[in-house]
Simulated assay, not measured.
Amino acid sequence: MENETSTGHVTRKTVLKAALAAGMAAPVALMGVPALARTMGGSEGDLALTPTCDDGDDPTIPQMEGPYFKPNSPLRSSMPDGPGTRLTVSGYVFGRSCLPISGVLLDFWQADNNGAYDNTGFKFRGHQFTGADGSYKLTAIVPGLYPGRTRHIHVKVQAPGRPILTTQLYFPNEPRNNTDTIYDPRLLMNVRDGSGGREAAFDFVLDVKQNPSPTPTPTSTATSNPPGGTWAAGTAYTAGARVTYGGVGYVCLQAHTAIAGWEPPNVPALWRVG
């Protein structure tokens, strides 16, 4: 696989991103062009890129959760929880046919500037959902180093009604990349210096089957009518609210307005059985 920034050819994902940004449909003639999940500069030599998004290719690979994950992180996309070099990570979540997926849960956690994880609170922990165009954006800091590991960010990614992908994101040109036994170059972000900090990009490809169409329409596997429950799309729920869905009771963990695809079984960051 080659990086489009080094070869100069236009990939399908580039066309899709441009169309999404402009609110237009992607040209039909370019829907069959192979796409790279990383489109910015800053690759690490000739190492393999994160998986392409053309039909039938492998999705983003999973990695171990590690010992520091905590459930029920706050709903937020900005984590200004301590000093360090400002970092913005952005990208899209795509399915197997390179179409964006809306309402995807992304739960991030990372070390602080000193390489320590907050295990008593929720510093440098937070979850968010992709927008209608499948995009996400995280603002944090460049995580510090701790013994035995290279620099990395943890994340869980879950499309509505689909299994959770747990993985880690890495930084290029880190000396410890060569000695970290968990590190995988397919999970490298593209990172560059930006205004007031560093900017990174990574697009997730989930194992979600899709039917390609001229318009990159976000997909959803859920309906707005709960099967025999009190949960309803469009309802503003507060923390502690109780609903039923499919004969099971749930307690709301985070205040939010429900939409189709966020039914209680699908988003454990918002609901727990109880």
Rank of each mutant, 00 (worst) to 15 (best):
V191R: 04
T221C: 08
T238V: 13
A159L: 13
W231G: 12
P163I: 01
G196W: 15
Q210W: 02
T221Q: 06
T238D: 11
G194A: 07
D193M: 06
T179K: 05
P175Q: 04
P227V: 15
A241W: 06
Q168W: 06
A232C: 00
P216A: 05
F202I: 05
T217E: 11
N178F: 14
I182W: 03
Y237W: 14
A241D: 15
P218S: 09
I182K: 03
A222D: 08
L187A: 04
T217A: 13
K209E: 11
R176I: 10
R162P: 01
D203F: 03
R176D: 13
D193C: 06
P160Y: 05
D180H: 03
P218V: 04
S213D: 12
E174H: 09
P214F: 08
T179R: 04
M189F: 09
P227N: 14
D193A: 08
A239W: 10
A236P: 06
P160A: 06
V208H: 01
P218R: 02
A241E: 13
P226E: 10
T219P: 00
R192D: 10
N225F: 05
P226F: 06
N173H: 13
F204D: 02
T219F: 05
P212T: 01
L188Q: 04
I164A: 14
R186W: 05
F204M: 04
P172T: 01
R186D: 07
D203V: 05
V191W: 03
S195E: 10
V191C: 06
A239T: 15
E199Q: 13
T166W: 11
P163T: 01
A159Q: 13
Y170T: 08
L165R: 09
R198F: 00
N173A: 12
P214M: 12
A241F: 12
A236M: 05
T217C: 07
R198S: 00
T219S: 10
F204K: 01
V205I: 07
L188E: 07
W231K: 12
T166R: 10
R198H: 00
F171W: 10
A233H: 13
V157K: 02
T179P: 03
P218I: 02
T238E: 12
N178Y: 14
T235M: 13
F204S: 03
N177S: 02
L188V: 01
A200I: 07
L187P: 00
P227K: 15
F171R: 07
N225R: 07
N173D: 13
E199L: 13
S195D: 09
S224V: 02
